[in-house]
Design a protein around this nucleic acid. Structure first.
Lengths: 169, 169
DNA sequence: TTGGAATGTCAACAAGACTGACGTATTTTC
DNA sequence: GAAAATACGTCAGTCTTGTTGACATTCCAA
């Protein structure tokens, strides 16, 4: 493949961070870091017969209370049937409440109950603790770089969702 | 939870990047970026009746040719039954070869066939292309910060595996 | 007012992870 | 040399989480 060699010798040192080796390292760092990133919430959810999908739903309902199923679908990038199964158990277990829309009765608006908020706190405390440690170790400049690269790595759609969430608070 | 408020007012601006809001943004950035990160290989594998699990196996066999099953298990963090299913199909399809160990005949050493290397190239070209774009947009300093934070985010075990792979080349 | 579009639910199925148990070959240890 | 440990493969069963297809309800626009 023509893309294989990204080492542009002629431009010297400046592009050294774009070598295939460097990129491969970045790929592996991303893989291992993501494992660490999800490890703590996974451990908490393990005993509760919930999984990562439940965590994601809870996280985004917490961030955007009153959001509709369709809305959540777009953010999570799964089919509505898949999300529905997760939501059903969360509603049955009294962690999420679903309200029929006043303006459009087809819509269901989702919010966390008190128990839901409590679990969200527990999960996000664990995840933030790891994040905080990593940030502290790395320092503010590294954190800025971290975010810059992550944003550049997103699909455009995802970036829109991310920016909307980020700036909407 | 006592951890809830990480804003340490008394230390002023210096720790502003450690606020819960900032951490939450980082968590979401990680979530969305990882989706982008896996999107391209996923698309390629979709048609081939392979999944992300096959991709991971191929990736690490490529990086560490001759690695044993146990070794791969530790890196991937899955059970042997789970890995075996994937490996079996890859061997049947002629992408991976398994050799009985010369020194220890209990071990199976795994390598990619030519066809396996070709698929690896195709997959990693796609992933590197996205990575390269992100790196280029972000610039070398951001990339350095990115890696620093990711390494700090790994579990210690994972970090060892990462460092071993990184420095072993 | 009626037919299409949008929203959400139920049912059935597949991939991929897990546990547990078992078998085999080989190496290590006592 | 016998017993224990290790490396690998496999069968069976379960769980989470993704998929498609079919369907009910509601809204809106022709």
């Amino acid at each position: 493949m023509a893309e294989g060699h990204s080492q542009n010798i002629s431009s010297g040192q400046a592009l050294l961070y774009l070598t295939d080796e460097q990129l491969r390292q970045g790929i592996e760092a991303m893989f291992f870091a993501y494992r660490g990133f999800t490890a703590d919430p996974d451990r908490i959810l393990e005993g509760l017969s919930y999984g990562r999908a439940h965590h994601r739903a809870i996280h985004f309902i917490h961030c955007a209370p009153g959001t509709t199923v369709n809305n959540l679908l777009a953010i999570l990038g799964v089919t509505k049937q898949s999300l529905n199964r997760v939501l059903r158990t969360l509603i049955e277990d009294g962690l999420v409440k679903s309200h029929v829309g006043r303006i459009d009765k087809r819509e269901r608006h989702l919010t966390l109950t008190e128990a839901g908020e409590a679990l969200e706190q527990q999960l996000s405390d664990a995840q933030r603790a790891r994040m905080r440690d990593a940030y502290r170790k790395a320092g503010p400049e590294a954190v800025a770089g971290f975010k810059t690269v992550l944003e550049a790595m997103m699909d455009d759609e995802m970036k829109r969702a991310y920016v909307a969430l980020r700036d909407g608070r």
